[in-house]
Design a protein around this nucleic acid. Sequence first.
DNA 1: CTCTCTGTCGAAAACGTTTTCGATTCCAGC
DNA 2: GCTGGAATCGAAAACGTTTTCGACAGAGAG
Lengths: 356, 356
Amino acid sequence: MVTIKDIARTLGVSVGTVSKALNGRDDVGDELRARIIDTARELRYEPDPIARRLVTKRSRTLGVFMLDRQGFGVRRNFGWLFLDGILRGAAARDYDLVLFSNTDDTRYERSYIDICRSRRVDAAIIVGLRGDDRYLEDVLNAPIPVALIDTEVSGGTATFVSSDNKAGAALALEHLAFLGHEKVATLRAPFSYPGRLRYEAWAEFAAARGRYRDDYIRDGDFTPESGMAAAAAFASMKDMPTAIFAASDLMAIGLIRGFERLGVRVPEDVSIVGFDDIPNADLVGPALTTVAQDTLGIGQAALDAVLDELDSGSRREEILVAPRLVVRRSCAAPGGAPDFLPEGSPAASRGVRRTP
Amino acid sequence: MVTIKDIARTLGVSVGTVSKALNGRDDVGDELRARIIDTARELRYEPDPIARRLVTKRSRTLGVFMLDRQGFGVRRNFGWLFLDGILRGAAARDYDLVLFSNTDDTRYERSYIDICRSRRVDAAIIVGLRGDDRYLEDVLNAPIPVALIDTEVSGGTATFVSSDNKAGAALALEHLAFLGHEKVATLRAPFSYPGRLRYEAWAEFAAARGRYRDDYIRDGDFTPESGMAAAAAFASMKDMPTAIFAASDLMAIGLIRGFERLGVRVPEDVSIVGFDDIPNADLVGPALTTVAQDTLGIGQAALDAVLDELDSGSRREEILVAPRLVVRRSCAAPGGAPDFLPEGSPAASRGVRRTP
DNA sequence: CTCTCTGTCGAAAACGTTTTCGATTCCAGC
DNA sequence: GCTGGAATCGAAAACGTTTTCGACAGAGAG
């Protein structure tokens, strides 16, 4: 390992000067600086990040916590996809990422912030923090910049980044309206914060059109099973809706499976639109039309938030990133052909994407 | 931040003694050691990992590279699952994980091993390395322990860890045989190494039963589209197989979608079994029966491999971890009811798992 | 010519550990 | 009483940087 001393020795200068030259300080002569840079390159010198951290007290690393909600967020959902966005952002700004997870109990007898402290990370991004987490207090009062992704809590000094749930739901509802649906129901998940927002969008949309009906509301818990149950409930109605907006893909797929079992066809008899765009949502029965969370954008936004706070000290309360409607095959005009998709959909102007 | 000096000062001893006491050296008195440990706890002292690394030259961190094969491994959310296993193993052995990805081009103008060197990580785990990677040479001659996951290359000093593909395929084929299938075809992916192994298992199985037929072999490329094409080809045969073993879930789902379009029912008319157990494979049309890769086990095995090599210097060429058959609804007895699953399946004795 | 200022460089401390080596004490054994 | 060794502790170097401060030269101003 070639150190700064080696290049100091070969040039007959002091290590301090080498350090200053390499770091672009202005108190070193142009000619000498050039020679230092040359031999540094020649010797294939790379500064030791460890030694640098020891003196600068900044580690240029940030901790990422992937919190496992008993397999809910991580295994089938897209928790990992956020990581992709974080990763790209970190690479672009030359930060390192150290990864933690709370699946192992022995290690997480300590608060996440405590772990950050002991690992000397500059900032933290936590994905999947729940409102009843036992370390919630610590997180909200953290002495370092913290960004929260895919979480249901609010308040405190952390910055929250999530999809713009109401705008996303509006995208889906506008698409259904454009297809000609008047009787659109919702399968909501009112126990969660994003679930409530998505429902509110539905309620406002329905009310604005004079189409609000209490019996077009069913409650689920984000599981496919609750979707199947809701399908049975909807199918037994005398005035069945022609379209259903589900608060999550998992429930939307549950609806599809439920209707399938009951012999009602999707999308011929009823259109279904989900929310999330979980992995392989394009492969389930009729490929799912859904509003896709911009997981990459969310991850990058979270990273930028903590790093900006680190640099400038300016903290942002909340960051909403726009989702995108991706139309596939689970929605059609009421009674129309499944492939019908008129040009000029209002959703199209906002970045609709069509995939096979 | 309370340092080792604080402890030394409050106790009136030297820092060296404190360090030795805390690290369990034997040249410090029992009574003094007890007092040191007490005040360390009292002062909430935590050793600074940065300073420690500087002197010990071991960072207790390892680099993980998630290589993106243009969205193939990563976006479908398979690669990330390995990370979960790696994470748990690292937590158990008190190592930190720094994460890299090659999605950002600017950062990866350098070899992965070069990055490890500059980041001073002790070992590396690379998931998704391709045989035509431009840094392949560097990886195979790396001066640090390296484990390769989900890769198609071999040779060199790295240790390869993957599913036992032949055993897994055998699991699926035995299950089909037990259900009563005599005419089982395969949709293979011969361009990839695991694909070839899975095919070989089919060929051996078929040959052993005198059921080998060239026209029961179709080739795909791991995409759902190739599965749909194969479905059309199989459906047009005069002597159509009653079961198909697909070399991947994506192709298996493609088969299902293709048959669905042609009006042949799964599993009533043809049984289909896949390989991988990708996320949400239980939600596609008929829930997919498949052989599940033990992603957790693979990740942990990779981690143990590099860490053991670090500790003892003993390297392992290859590690095969056993997959598991998970039976759902895409397989049935030929002409039988979809829910038929006889007791005492031979696969059951090897850890078959049944999920709704 | 002297004084001050600017530009350029080196010396040294500092960051928080670990580890080596030597010093000191104490006690057993002769 | 002296020697030898074991037990216990401290001093100091070392790891590879960054940063502060002072030294020195030269130049420009008075």
